[in-house]
Write a protein that binds this DNA or RNA. Structure first.
Lengths: 133, 133
DNA sequence: ATCATATTGCAAAAGTGTCGCAAAATGATA
DNA sequence: TATCATTTTGCGACACTTTTGCAATATGAT
């Protein structure tokens, strides 16, 4: 997978530098990672570089921003992981991934009814997880 | 409707001041409004006041934050308008409201399957509207 | 090894949101 | 209406987040 992304970077004319791959590694590991989590995990990399790399990854659809609770985070793009949504617990702050074919289907219906061509979507569900209810 | 909110503020022990009502008016008109749109629409009101008022409105469920595209915006809470989601056009930036019973139903199903108790949710669909496709 | 280009760090600046405190506005009471 | 306690607001400072220009460094091609 990391290899695949390396290739994609090269194909698009960007160098898969050590720092870019290190940032990618953190995104793989933390999922979804806040910008600060990435910055703090990699003290040897300047914040400007982290921001620029995130922007690059988003442009290339390697990563995307999602809103869990009320801060955005970074996770892998849909080509590099199963598409899913988030259940965020207000109490323990855990973010659980869920796959929801019914929701995908419902979105298809709705957009078709409006002549809208969907490129992506983001669903965040906020509440209390089984343990914290 | 504005009257209803005035009453609600009083009941909760807050004064429905002119400035608070002016901010409410802007939220009514712009829907969903970015913080900067609100601040710029009301140059006579200090930024700190705008932020504090938005926080107050959110605490009282008069307003809520939603993410259209990649910045959050403020709109009326679910008690004061039909619950809906947004179709945001990447080209013309128009934000269209849609009501989607199927999606509400699908969310219910999904959360039940996970023992999750949903308090609110936010779905943003990004793509191209009928005119821009 | 050399060179043109891409990437990075650094420092400054812009943007966004929060806070303490003093001044002003409000509503209750007399 | 005048007084008073309380709430609301503006101001300024500050903290945090993100962007930018530029010089230094690293990279890949030759």
């Amino acid at each position: 997978m990391q290899e695949e992304i390396k290739t994609l970077l090269k194909e698009q004319g960007f160098t898969p530098t050590k720092k870019r791959l290190a940032i990618l590694d953190v995104i793989f590991k933390i999922q979804p990672a806040s910008v600060n989590q990435i910055i703090n995990s990699l003290p040897e990399i300047d914040r400007a570089t982290v921001y620029r790399t995130i922007d690059l990854f988003i442009d290339l659809n390697i990563a995307k921003k999602v809103y869990t609770g009320f801060k955005y985070r970074i996770e892998l793009g849909d080509s590099f992981q199963e598409h899913h949504h988030h259940l965020t617990c207000l109490r323990c702050k855990t973010v659980m991934d869920v796959q929801t074919p019914e929701i995908e289907f419902a979105i298809d219906q709705t957009t078709k009814n409006n002549g809208f061509r969907p490129m992506r979507h983001d669903l965040e569900i906020i509440g209390y997880c089984a343990n914290c209810s």
